[in-house]
Design a binder for these strands. Structure first.
Length: 483
RNA sequence: GUCCCCAUCGUCUAGUCAGGUCAAGGACACGGGCCUUUCACGCCCGCGACACCGGUUCAAAUCCGGUUGGGGACGCCA
């Protein structure tokens, strides 16, 4: 182990949806480890899911990562010696490597349809097995497989897992972890659309980009043996694996947007300082080893060590984040704080976004701040009397159920005024409730007021995270109403 | 269900690797008080945890085993 290679780590977000606090968390650890060891921090965009990946999301991720202050050394927007840094631009590479696997017998084509896979999966569950795919197409003769591929029959490429023995690896935080090979199914490496899955792409890219330490969330630990088998199939040296504990909701489940605001943008919107966010993330699952709780990025890097990581999944406690933010605000010099205020709440961008909504509703500039409070308040008070008074045909409990279901279904709706309007109107029809009654409930839940700019424009401006959070808060309050 | 990971106050954590200095320390939240024209801030006090059962040892929060509990994974998503 004397051939010390220069440390290279990466953060590899998938550009689907809003930039996530988990990305910043894993990013912070990677960043700190790189800085601590004089290494490079790489940003790689994992956009192999062409159904869900969007350029807007990618741009938002870059923006959010920069906002918190985790600047990368190599990435899609700034290049580097190991590009391209966007997986959708590396298709040739993956195809080439798939060919290697096919040739050396480590992978095989699978012609099963999604329907067939569904029933196989169901059967496996019934047999109380952990395994997914049962290996049906693995038994097809190579000549026949080749013929069917050449004939253009739709297929995926699967990894041929060893059938016996076990595969293990050393996790830097947990030690030896190993799995019986017969527990692991033949993972799809390349989809029928010709794009690789995460498993193939991340192994190929990590190797080609000379990543030395794969530092990622614990949700990946179960697929690591598949990756190890891939490294072996290619004849490559695997990197060091480090699986970080998962951030949690209050109920300890994996952090999710329905139970907790997870969008970095949300915290930016309510006026969390980026250094507070980083400070807070830095105290989840890691401590400086003394009583310091308020620290900056440099101090964190200074003290960072895998030996100081604790493995219990930390709850993302917004109250503590708020406290930390308050401490930093109070510590800040007045001119600095004043300019921060202008940069965030009164930025050109923020004000321009809100002005169209309230311009015709004010007669003096002084009325502006009051009109926009609900865009930036984390804990918006909801006047329950007002809300309950608006209920004509439903009880508070019924409205709670209605709103909860509404939040759930809203997940799949593009968060813009028109689609939201279409969705909510349809929802009223489906639930056979007067538009006015539901809309007023939503309006009060989301803004705390009866009189606001048009609901859907307001919702769009508020953003998904805030709307979801408020609606769910209202659901809880409605449940408690006693008539 | 199967496999894997984890386990100190309600929450974030120190202590665990190198057992004794821990009748377990700090912070958030919560309760009370002080300060104060109010509210906050600040300060003080309080509440509050080694999941359980065995084993090893002179000695276990710390090591070992089991149980329980929690979480994750089991997608042509990452």
């Amino acid at each position: 182990m004397t051939d010390k290679k220069p440390v290279r780590v990466r953060i590899a977000p998938s550009p689907t949806g809003d930039p996530h606090v988990g990305t910043a968390y894993v990013g912070l650890i990677n960043f700190a480890f790189a800085r601590k060891n004089g290494g490079r921090f790489v940003l790689r965009i994992e956009d192999t899911d062409r159904e869900r990946s969007t350029p807007e999301s990618e741009a938002a991720i870059l923006d959010s990562l920069r906002w918190v202050g985790l600047e990368w050394d190599e990435g899609p927007d700034k290049g580097g010696d190991y590009g391209p840094y966007r997986q959708s631009e590396r298709s040739d590479l993956y195809r080439e490597h798939i060919r290697t696997l096919l040739d050396n017998g480590s992978a095989y084509p699978c012609f099963c349809t999604p329907e067939e896979l569904g029933s196989i999966r169901k059967r496996q569950r019934e047999q109380k097995k952990n395994k997914g795919y049962d290996g049906t197409c693995r038994r097809i003769e190579p000549d026949e497989a080749r013929r069917r591929m050449d004939a253009g029959e739709p297929h995926t490429i699967r990894l041929a897992m060893p059938l016996e023995g076990e595969t293990g690896f050393t996790d830097r935080l947990r030690g030896e972890v190993s799995y019986a090979n017969d527990q692991i199914d033949d993972q799809i490496l390349m989809k029928s659309d010709g794009f690789p899955t995460y498993h193939l792409a991340n192994v190929v890219d990590d190797h080609l980009m000379e990543i030395t330490h794969v530092i990622r969330a614990e949700e990946w630990i179960n697929s690591t043996p598949k990756h190890v088998v891939l490294y072996q199939a290619f004849g490559w040296e695997p990197p060091v694996f480090v699986h970080l504990p998962l951030l949690r909701n209050k109920d300890k489940s994996k952090i999710s947007k329905r139970k907790n605001p997870v969008a970095l943008n949300y915290y930016r919107q309510i006026g969390i300082l980026p250094e507070s966010m980083l400070n807070f993330l830095g105290m989840l699952g890691h401590s400086l080893g003394d009583d310091r709780e308020v620290f900056d990025l440099e101090e964190f890097i200074q003290e960072f060590s895998f030996d100081r990581v604790s493995l219990g999944g930390p709850v993302f406690d917004v109250d503590k984040l708020l406290w930390l933010n308050g401490v930093r605000i109070r510590d800040m010099a007045v001119p600095e704080l004043a300019s921060r205020l202008r940069e965030s709440l009164f930025s050109q961008e923020a004000v321009e976004r809100l002005v169209p909504l309230i311009r015709e509703r004010i007669d003096s500039l002084g009325e502006f701040p009051d009109k926009v409070t609900y865009f930036t308040l984390h804990k918006l008070p909801i006047p329950m009397e007002l809300m309950v008074k608006g209920l004509k045909t439903r009880t508070p409990a019924e409205m709670a159920t209605l709103l909860k279901k509404c939040v759930k279904e809203m997940d799949g709706v593009e968060f813009a005024a028109e689609p939201l309007e279409e969705f909510l109107k349809g929802y009223c029809e489906e639930k056979d409730i007067k538009i006015g009654e539901l809309f007023m409930a939503v309006r009060i839940a989301v803004t705390g007021r009866k009189a606001t700019p048009p609901l859907f424009e307001t919702m769009e401006a508020l953003g998904r995270a805030a709307v979801t959070q408020r609606l769910l808060a209202a659901v809880e309050l409605l449940k408690q109403v006693r008539l």
